[in-house]
Amino acid sequence: MSKLNRALMVVLLVCGPMTSGSAENISGDNTRSLDGQVQEIKSDVLNIASELSNLEERLLYPSGTQIAVFVSMAEAEKFRLDAVQIEINGELATHHIYSFNELEALQKGGVQRLYTGNIPSGDHQLNVTMIGKLKNGTDFNASDSFVIAKGIKPKALGITLSRPDSGSSGIKVGDW
């Protein structure tokens, strides 16, 4: 029994970073070879994904009519964003409810592509609504309207959200 214990301890002490257990020795080389092939197929699939995205964009959202709406949070904003709704010319374009991970990604500086669609060139009415909760626990529901001009180029709109206060809705829209 004592020998068994000691053997365990020896294993505990002498295992270096490059020495491996029995299971690893069985498959180490094969794993590395497979790993290389897996990396290759990942690269292939990424290329396919990129090409497919381009194709989809060309097919579904031609540049002349394309509008993409992106959402980001103003720097250092920590309020809880629950949902955002976008209406274009009074029609619901999209409504998104945020998960914890998505909210955290926005708070860390990520930008979410919330909507991609088609509109004709000219002026359009954009209504943005955000629903959330302030740090003090107060629920809020803020909306704002904007007029956006669509030209012949694809339109990319950036919506920046911050905590609403008495003077402003906390929703800003800008061209990118």
């Binding site: 992106f70 980001s72 998505e102 990604a105 926005l106 990520g110 930008v111």
Partner: peptide, 8 residues
Amino acid sequence: GEALYYAH
């Protein structure tokens, strides 16, 4: 920013 959104 969109890439960062997914990475985060």
